[in-house]
Structure formats: structure tokens, C-alpha cells
Write a protein that binds this DNA or RNA. Sequence first.
DNA 1: TAAGGTTCCGGGATCGTTGTCGGGAACGAT
DNA 2: ATCGTTCCCGACAACGATCCCGGAACCTTA
Lengths: 346, 346
Amino acid sequence: MKFEVVTIKDIAQALGISTSTVSRALRDSYEISPQTKQMVLECAERLNYRPNPIALSLKERRSRSIGIVVCEIANNFFSQVINGVESIAYDRGYNVIISQSRESCEREFIDLQYLASRSVDGLLISLSTETTDISQLKTLHAKGLPIVFFDRISEEIDTHKVVLDNFKGSYDATEHLIRNGHHRIAVLTNSAYLSITSGRIAGFKEAMHAHGLPLDENYIQHCAYGGMVFEEVEEAINRLLSLPDKPDAIFATSDKLTTGTLKTLKRRGIHIPTDISIVGFSNSEIAELIGPPLTVVRQPAFEMGQVATELLLRVIESKRPVTQFETKVLQPELFIRESVLQRSSS
Amino acid sequence: MKFEVVTIKDIAQALGISTSTVSRALRDSYEISPQTKQMVLECAERLNYRPNPIALSLKERRSRSIGIVVCEIANNFFSQVINGVESIAYDRGYNVIISQSRESCEREFIDLQYLASRSVDGLLISLSTETTDISQLKTLHAKGLPIVFFDRISEEIDTHKVVLDNFKGSYDATEHLIRNGHHRIAVLTNSAYLSITSGRIAGFKEAMHAHGLPLDENYIQHCAYGGMVFEEVEEAINRLLSLPDKPDAIFATSDKLTTGTLKTLKRRGIHIPTDISIVGFSNSEIAELIGPPLTVVRQPAFEMGQVATELLLRVIESKRPVTQFETKVLQPELFIRESVLQRSSS
DNA sequence: TAAGGTTCCGGGATCGTTGTCGGGAACGAT
DNA sequence: ATCGTTCCCGACAACGATCCCGGAACCTTA
């Protein structure tokens, strides 16, 4: 099942010249005569020669490819980020290798090992929910692998980061609920270890505080797998709904959690927004098609991918080691639709 | 920005032995004494040695990776296929390199070139809408690159194929509409060049025919970019709705077309199913959350990815050239929900 | 004691490409 | 006639790993 390829050697042999000459002719070196160049170029064309990037990677120790690790591609937010990444990388001649951690730190470990050994020139990563130990990333970074964090970052590594203004997204969503007369607002969120979680919780709490509303920790539910497993969302919702003082609104702080919440409520026959109001983070283009159209916090995912890639390529292509790093904060947008009831405010 | 790595040479030097010995010790060769093996293994562990797969790829002309080309990953069907692919490939020690053609044959061409030069051991592909010329794939296949088609296939290459029973999916959906009293059924479908289109159109026509209903070609609308650009769907729907004899149902034959249709109707304030009934192909997990819950044809996407990968790996790992190819046909499932009105049948 | 067998290990080629070095030919200048 | 340039081009090493050879050291047996 081998797969014969034309090499520089074949051209050299066909033309009776050395491989060095062929190599230089193809790279349009000044020390090759125009005639020879012409000859080589024609021969290369005729034999349909394609340079072998593997040999090049081995020699140059770079692959003109970047790796991206996300928890899941079947997620609107991340697939949009990836599109943003590709839109930039593609133009700059880089290929993108996509890896899914499936929210498992073990998978993430293996993915990283693969990407590193594959000589990616740089890495984009949004950490998995499970990840608490980032020593592997630290090692890679220390060895000189350019890394840019996006979305779910780690403060333990000093490098470029691109994040959402999680606080604001959360604050706005919560305030929208409060302004519509909701006081008992529950939050469904990710693992507390995740960087995005603290900001989103803080925004929520601050909004409650600003409006003089009490906080009840029972109203804050964490989903360890970020909604990857539906059951954990279902259980969290059930816990919320069996609380003595039932919430009048649920705020889901991620794409997966939002759809999980909707699915659970649907199955339990709970009507939105008359029975309960919903606001959720969502980058799904069909959020507006849901019954009722969903009020959402939308992240600039495509842009996040672009910005992160720009930063990464800047590090990769920098001549001297980069030591000044920045953290870019992108703004979320609140799309107000019909999943929040206008309650007679007290 | 180089990135120092430990090689077999470093181990050899540290231990004062040859690289051959190190190599064999690591591969647990019989001709290395237990003591030496122990020594090498310990040293490798200590230096955190990782074999360089690029060097291996160069030497062995295989990369233990397979390529997959889809039009778009931000599409439920394809992201589920990819998950199926990974679930198998991962267990068998293969890595998956994902490429998006974005329905452009030019991008597809470049993707293929990249994957081929990257020495993928095999290829999974669902053709882009634009693709009419598959000479590049033919060449690669002729050179010995194992290829398995899935979803959107080409009959011009003799190799394994995994497809949906498009005819049945379409027939069932159409029949469901007919049984509910719809007679003027419009179809929104892909480019006529696509393999999936003919089967889906045929299923529709046969169902109409079987129930003695007339066919009006004006009711069949093709979207050249398969719904990738929203406007083409919008225009197609508008054309349908401005027909003198307006359809009483629309059948959308792909994921993107379905969401495009819903979005258009929503914007025009047309109510489903009272104004018009809808059935669509969809693998979205939130089809049931839409207002109203959508009646859909669902494809076994995950399974399709698994089956295609199994077939591909079988070819890759086969000792002698494979000449017997099969085409696996997977069955769709019709999920009946509330987007089809029960009309008083005439 | 010499011939033949094991056991264990090193040298070198190889994969495709590039870069360093050097060298031959042609030409003009001395 | 000799030297110095310039213009082209080839030989060789290198990147990291594997594998075919070959060979030293030791043991067995005639």
C-alpha cells in the first residue's frame, strides 16, 4: 500500500544533474543559470513534483501548522472559533490541526503530546473542565512552544490570552432578568475550577448585589462536565426545581448547559417563560428558532479565533523571544428575545 | 523559537553507547541485554524522551494519521460523523486530521494536496457541492492512497463507500406529509451534481407517484451552495411562496437547508405548521426544542463515521492490495414531531 | 587448539530536503 | 603565463529514527 512519490532525486536523475541543483533551481536561487532553472521547472511540472513537507519539517523543525485543542467541535461556540482560526491561518500559509479533549484531562494530555511531537509551530488551547494540572503545558511552554490561551485560560502561564468579558456577559444577563421582575435567579454553570466560571459567577453576584437581591448558594449549580453529559444538567435542574423556594429564572452560562436546560424543561413539560424564564449563553444560530426564541448572551467566537491566531502567529514568527504578553478581552452581546417573562415587579 | 527535544542521540551520548543500541533497546529487541535495556529505559524516562513521529513518517512513509475532508464542521451531521471517526481511529492509534472544504472545490483541492503531502495513510471524504472534477482524487487513489467515500460519494472511483439510504429517508418523509393530507409538497435540495441529491429527489418523486400525486418541477428548488449561504435558501423559499399555487409543505433535504428554511419562515412571520408544514433532514439535537418541535429525518452520523473508518483502516492495514470494495447503506430514521399539520385530507 | 555458535553491540545507509563547502570552467587583467 | 573573479554546479552532512551488516567477545565442541 505504499504510495510512490516524485522526489527531487527523480528530477535530478531524469536530468542528469545533482539534487542540490534541483533544490536550488526550485527555490529560484541566484546561483543557478536561467536555462537550468527552466529545465528543472519544466521537469518538475511534468513529473508533478510536490515537495515533501515531512522531510522539511524534520530538517527545519517547523511544520507550518498550528494545533488547536478544544473540548468538543460539535459545539457552536468552538466550531465558530475554529472557523475564525482557519480564516487567519489559511491566509498565512499555516495548517490547523484540530484536537478534541472531550472535557477529559487525560485526552487533553494525549492530544498535547501528539501535537507537540508533531512539531506544531504553536498551540491554541481552551482547557478542559477536568484540567487542574497544567504542568505539561508549562513544560511545553518553557521548552519554547508558543501557546495562546483562549476562552478557558490558566493564569499560571504567562502568555497571550484571549477571553470574553465574562463578568459583563453575566452581569447583563442577570440584570435583564432582574429588570423583568425576577428575584429568585438560579445559575447553572461549569466546574468552579474553570477560568470562565469565576467571572461569570462574579458578574451574576454583582448584579444581584447591585439590585439589593439576596444570594442563595443553593441557586448556584455546577456541572462538572460542562453539560457534555446530559444527565448532570438534568439532575442539576431537578435539584433547582425541587428547592422549597423555586427559582423564577434560570441563567445557563454556556452553550451546552443552555441546550441541556431547555431539553430538561421540555421533557418535564415546563413552559418557558410562563413557568420559568431562561437566559443562556449560546452561539447557536437557531436560538431564535426555539420555542420561545431564546434570550442569549452571544460570544464573538469567530473573532476570538481570529484574535488568538493573530497573536499566536506573531509569537511564532517573531525573531527574538517574546516576553511581553497581553490579554485581550472581547465583549459579549445580549440578544433579547422571548424567553424571559415580564413579571409585575414588586 | 526553536524548541529543544530529546533524541535517541542524546540518550546514546549520555550512556556512551550507539544510537542503534538505544533504538533497539527502546523497541525491546531480543538482541539487547536486559541490563542495557534497563539502563536505556531509565535514561529515556529521565530525559523525558519522546520519539519523533516526523522522522518516523519520513522513514516509514506512513504517518499513522488519516485525513477527513468535509464541507463544514459547524454542521451537526458532519461533527457527529467526525466524532464517529475519532472514536474508532483513536482506539487504533491513528490521528485524525480534519479539513473543511467550505463547499469550494478549490479549497477541497488544496486540502487534498495538503493531506496527501502530509502522508496521511488514508482518506475519508464527503465531496463539496462544487466538485465535478475528481481527477485529483483519482490520481491519488491510483497512486495507492486508500480512500473511503461517505455521504456525498462519487461513482467514478471504485472504492469503499458509506451512504445513507437517501431514497428511503426522502420517501418516508414525503409519505408522512402525504398521509397528513399534503398534496402540494415543495422540496428544497442541494446541487443536482451531488450524489445525495438524486437519491433524495428520487425518493420524493416515487412517494408522490405511489400516492398518485402530480409532480411540478417548480416545486423542486436547488441550492447551489447547500445552504452555506443563507440568501440562496431565502430566495428559494421566496420563489416557492410566490408560486401561483403555493405549496402546503416544504421538505428540506439537508441540515443547513432545514435551518435556513426555518429562519426564512420565521423572518417572514409564517407560522409552522398552520401556514405551512415542514419536514427536514436534521441531526441537530435541539430540533425538538424548536417552535414547533421539528419532524426530521435523522441520519446515523456517528455510525457512518465509525463504519467508514473501519473500512478505511481495513484497507490501510491490509497486506495485499484490496480490490473488492463494498458500499454500505445506512438507514435513516424519521422522528415525527409537530411541524406537520394534520390536514383534513380531501 | 581451531572451528563454529551465541550474544550483544556499533557502523553506516536510508527516507527527502537544504545548506555549507568546495571546485572546475571561462574570462579578463596583469 | 599566471592570478583573481565570477558563474555554475556537485559532494557531503544533517535532521531523527530504523535496520541491515558485520564484528568482537565469549562459549561450546571436536
